[in-house]
Nucleic acid binder design. Structure first.
Lengths: 193, 193
DNA sequence: TTATTCATTGAATTTTTGTTTAACAAAATT
DNA sequence: AATTTTGTTAAACAAAAATTCAATGAATAA
């Protein structure tokens, strides 16, 4: 049984290897800037072998976007009563994840780039656009405004400010892994009344 | 005299035209993703003519980075007494500029990308890295902490949180020009004690 | 007006990148 | 052990992009 899977496992490993180095490269150089030769060299294989595992550069990018979609939405599952509490918890949680696992920070960056990069495969762009925390959080902000815990003002603009701050910080940490990470509550103070 | 300059002016106009469309394209597609054919088509000229005005794509990118360096550092000139006031004013000022002049928002994005994009010309990357508001503002934050106006905590992390929030919001506005713009004071609340 | 310079294009050329393939080595199956 | 399947490479090939160039016509200078 273990013999039978040896190749399967290795194939899976190789694929993951490609995905891993590609994530870094796509972040560093963008979709077009990343050459197959970059990927294959980083993964320690010939350019030809790349095509044994993926049909194209597009496919790798799309697969990363799918992985990112799951990972980036996961933190939203937290069940809350106090709206401000929710935002404090979520930002703390995101920052903690980023501190512990730099790959998550990288994913934030990748997904943001995937939304933007018009040279990237359209499918991946669509996938990345599904991460829309700003719209998702508007009702929560409105609830907090009613109870007076969250400051007054356009709920969409507030949600935007909060999530863009998170995004900006995550991106920075992804690029500068050694810099000190802010506290989650600081970002939540954007919303605090 | 005016006759003599006619061609000079036109040449300057063409160059600016190229710079302008390139800014948009570089933001949308990154350095490598932007083809000479994209630039020349957007500027309404043949690909060959591009080389009449610039030696290479690199040169255009570098010139944009130089322009961005000036434009992005300008807002820091504000003279302040109250540290928190400084941050409120500066964020309000930046947001106002972005609302009025989308090109500034685009520049924020471009400069951030230029720092990151390892497929971009090294010269431009170095230029972009000169924009370092985070380090520049640490003393101001320390001053505010002494007078109790700014919250306690690692000054560098606070500065990072503030500037990354600004960056994140500016980037979002650059991509979604019709979204509502947050208030400057909200972002300054990251720092408020 | 004539000669000269410059802007412009489209095609030719060169370079880079992406992809396929033929050949071979290693592993698995019989 | 023999055969088949899979992993791997380097070279061949194809496509795309960057860059150069010869030709043309318009603006400028003489």
């Amino acid at each position: 049984m273990s013999e039978i899977n040896k190749r399967e496992e290795q194939k899976e490993e190789r694929r993951n290897q490609i995905l891993e180095v590609s994530l870094d490269l796509f972040i560093e150089k963008g979709f077009s800037g990343t050459k197959i030769s970059d990927i294959s060299a980083s993964a320690g294989m010939s350019a030809g072998l790349f095509f044994h595992y993926f049909e194209s550069k597009e496919q790798v990018y799309e697969e990363l976007a799918n992985i990112g979609l799951e990972g980036t939405q996961a933190p939203m599952m937290y069940d809350f009563e106090n709206p401000l509490d929710f935002f404090e918890t979520i930002s703390e949680q995101i920052f903690m994840t980023i501190r512990q696992n730099r790959r998550v920070a990288k994913m934030f960056l990748f997904m943001a780039n995937a939304q933007l990069d018009k040279s990237a495969p359209p499918k991946a762009r669509e996938t990345a656009l599904k991460v829309n925390n700003i719209q998702l959080c508007i009702p929560i902000i409105e609830k907090g405004q009613k109870t007076g815990i969250i400051k007054q003002g356009d709920p969409e603009a507030l949600s935007l400010a909060f999530w863009c701050a998170i995004q900006g910080i995550a991106e920075y940490i992804a690029v500068n892994p050694d810099s000190s990470c802010p506290q989650g509550s600081w970002v939540a103070d954007i919303l605090r009344a």
